[in-house]
Amino acid sequence: MEKDNKLSMVVFSGDMDKVMAAFIIATGAAASGMDVTMFFTFWGLKAIQKDSSLTGKGLFGRMLGLMNRGGIDTIGPSRFNFGGMGRWMMKTMMKQKNVASLPELRDMAIELGVKMMPCQMSMDVLEVGADKMLPATTPPVGVAAFVEEAVHSKATLFI
């Protein structure tokens, strides 16, 4: 199989620090001339929801939507979040050091043409509608769509 100059990545985590790593690698690879595809599944969907509005249809889905707010500015770090204190502290520290914020990194990824694919099955399970996704994302896809991207890629990552 001929491999393209492409990087494919699964973004499974919805933690602020891991999502940040994902977007830094994606923008860095895109800036180096690679085609980049990011497949957002499960908690990772939170990173491409256009805002932190409530999601869910049934009782469990709504409970989950309440406890697990989406939106890239709402997500907290994988460690030491302390109910949002950690997120605030990390954001403040990053700002002091002039590191690009998560929304800026994501905007940059969009500008560089990074392809962002939401996982249909996770959206069904977590009851997150397609209307909640950023306009820059592709329509929801399944595993075969990601596998097709991955087999043509020189590098694949799972975050």
């Binding site: 860095g28 800036a31 002039n98 990194l105 560089l112």
Partner: peptide
């Protein structure tokens, strides 16, 4: 000046 990873290479590429 003042930019940190990944912004220098991103801005350079743009």
């Amino acid at each position: 000046k003042g930019l940190l990873c990944p912004m220098p290479v991103v801005k350079l590429q743009l």
